Computed example of a mutant assay.
Amino acid sequence: MSSDDGRNRPPARILVVEDEIFIAMEIERALTTDGFEVLGPVGSIEDALELLHRDQPDAAVLDVTLRDGKVTPVAVLLRSQGVPFVLASAEGRELTETGFFQGVTNLGKPTNMRLMIGEIQRLLS
């Protein structure tokens, strides 16, 4: 008798878009420690879009303001692919109260890694 308790499934793949290298490394470490596979991290819109044309993640963690602009084009592509995401941004609450990111969870910065893991798990369930 075989039971599938999740151990036979491959790890969920999480895209990390963050241009601050130490923050990106901290997010990557937290995700891999919790059993996720990390795509990236990538630090630019261009690199994120290129990666998304090769690979599809199960979910994503996005910084909003990158060196080459706002992450919105990446979020638009993720939405079109049905990929859920959370934000890890220092921008205020107004970011998620209206407009494109309305209703999306913003974990803030500094990001609480346990909270991030919980949100990723919630998105995937």
Rank of each mutant, 00 (worst) to 15 (best):
S2T: 13
L51Y: 09
V38P: 05
N8I: 03
V76L: 08
F100Q: 14
F101N: 03
V64F: 12
G40R: 00
M116G: 04
I120R: 06
R7D: 12
S80K: 12
G40M: 06
G40P: 02
D34E: 15
P11R: 07
E94D: 14
F85E: 06
V17G: 06
R93G: 01
Q56D: 05
Q102P: 01
L51G: 11
L66W: 05
L115S: 14
P11S: 10
V76Q: 09
L31E: 01
V104G: 11
V74T: 05
L49Q: 08
D55I: 09
L115Y: 02
L49S: 08
Q102D: 01
E97A: 08
V61A: 11
T72F: 05
R67L: 08
G92K: 07
G43S: 08
V16T: 08
T111Y: 00
N112P: 01
V104Y: 04
A12C: 02
V16D: 05
V86G: 11
R7N: 07
D19V: 06
G6N: 04
L15A: 07
I23R: 01
A59M: 03
P73F: 02
L95H: 11
K109V: 05
R114G: 02
S125A: 06
N106A: 14
T72L: 12
G82L: 03
V86L: 09
G40E: 02
D55A: 14
T105N: 07
M1W: 12
R13D: 00
L15R: 08
D63N: 11
G43F: 04
D47E: 15
G103Q: 12
E50G: 06
R93W: 06
K109Y: 09
N8L: 14
D68A: 00
D4N: 14
I21E: 12
Q121P: 01
E26L: 10
L77S: 07
V104I: 15
F36K: 03
V64L: 14
P10M: 12
R13Q: 14
L107M: 10
T98R: 13
V38S: 07
R9D: 15
D55S: 13
P57E: 10
G69R: 10
S44E: 03
